[in-house]
Design a protein around this nucleic acid. Structure first.
Lengths: 252, 252
DNA sequence: TATTTTTTGTGAGTTTCTGACAATTTTCAA
DNA sequence: TTGAAAATTGTCAGAAACTCACAAAAAATA
């Protein structure tokens, strides 16, 4: 009875974003305001909502609001990344073990990730924190010096970290791609890491939004034929797709 | 003048997470509460903060440490932790190298940390992200499986990580302390890690707020005489202080 | 059924917030 | 520099929201 009401309350706030106590009172006519206040307090202590003057708002709402302000700063074509992440999330089977990088596309994937029993290795701090919210999933962070601009770790000794780890699948993304140069990124240690990840994995999924095509970054970590599946958005050029398909790479 | 104050206000909230109007009043002694209220209103309309009863909180804070981690942080005596963190931050010299754990007190310290040239090793993901905001500071995260409830890493192979690292100073905190049991915490892998950190460090600073006294957790990682400096709050009992001082431990 | 525990309601008292208006400071043109 | 307009700030009273303590009700337990 109490439990249910609290869940309903949390749901309601998640859907509506922000509600006043009066509005909540309308939704729950057979309990007093005081009870609702107490429920809200409990939800706040669980970190699920934030109580504001006059009512409460869901944490998700805050993340969304901030997302708008924050997204502009961080994410270039977030839409494409989101759609790519959604596609990628459908490819993850229960009880598998996989590697993800720490980039913004990986971050999208982390958010879209189903809460199933899988083990994820990552070098992204934000990715790890996001994944740690999921109950059924376990996460291991690769240690190393923190790269400030993308909050991921990298270290020349990453090889050691990989020695005792096993994963079937690596899902990574690149900062740049051309057919002849391959997939590249800006940092050498990161390129090293990704290279190791792809060698270790049985299967390699590459997430690449179409804005990356034709760009070149200093360090190549994979060639066209190294990957098994390419996950991209709708604006990906058809002739480019053909190029991948010729090498027996699944494009989706 | 107004612009500057508002920016400062936003910065402050971003760093501290959540502050009451009274606290804000202390920071801005030469303006009235009403002015601060108006400033907060403006910041809220910009989507940068959320006004809550009694004060305001930063949006970044919510999105960064969502869920359980946030709830915990607000829960147990944040004031004492802040004061302890402030004391600890004064003890850090430029160009040194130190270890910090991933607990909530360490998180406070991370926020209070001066932006100077030091190298920090930590097993806390949130701590690492916080520290990564500082320009002059460099951070290394210890790898390992992520412990979901406190967002820190731990792994049985942490010993290997420590092998190639050197730091003079370890600043750690405990979940519990009694004179005979010593400093203890709830997780075995974490206790192992902290034990290694203290053995590796030349000097060991322990941050302990007074609410931890008399409590016992399953795994002891240091005894009273292992530490060099104890950093605590004002409510720390005098007789307990004496106990430390008898062992030549600095109490502050 | 009796007893304990948990949950809920009520109202007084406190704290925080808002609105209106006056005082002050800043801006800008003459 | 001076004066007028605009913006910013302070004060205070009234309103709104919140908390606390205790009693009533409901649920759980013996």
């Amino acid at each position: 009875m109490k439990r249910e009401r609290i869940e309903e309350l949390a749901d309601l706030l998640d859907r509506r974003g922000r509600l006043s106590l009066e509005q909540l009172d309308d939704f729950f006519p057979n309990v007093s305001q005081m009870t609702l206040r107490r429920d809200l307090l409990q939800l706040e202590q669980q970190g699920r909502i934030i109580r504001v003057r006059g009512g409460a708002m869901s944490v998700k709402e805050v993340q969304k609001v901030s997302g708008e302000a924050y997204a502009k700063k961080t994410a270039s074509n977030a839409d494409a990344k989101l759609r790519i992440a959604q596609k990628a999330s459908t490819l993850i089977d229960e009880n598998c073990s996989l590697f993800m990088d720490g980039g913004t596309t990986a971050m999208c994937l982390a958010k879209e990730m189903p809460d199933i029993s899988v083990h994820v290795f990552t070098n992204g701090l934000a990715v790890a924190i996001e994944l740690a919210q999921k109950k059924n999933l376990s996460v291991t962070v690769l240690g190393g010096q923190v790269i400030k601009d993308n909050l991921s770790t990298a270290s020349p000794v990453a090889k050691d970290y990989f020695e005792n780890t096993n994963f079937e699948l690596a899902i990574i993304s690149a900062s740049a791609f051309t057919p002849d140069i391959g997939f590249s990124c800006g940092s050498m240690v990161e390129a090293d890491l990704l290279k190791m990840a792809r060698q270790k994995a049985k299967t390699l999924y590459m997430m690449l939004d179409s804005s990356k095509i034709g760009k070149i970054m200093p360090h190549t970590f994979a060639r066209l034929e190294d990957i098994d599946v390419l996950i991209t958005d709708d604006s990906f050029p058809a002739d480019m797709k053909e190029l991948f398909r010729q090498k027996n790479i699944v494009v989706m």
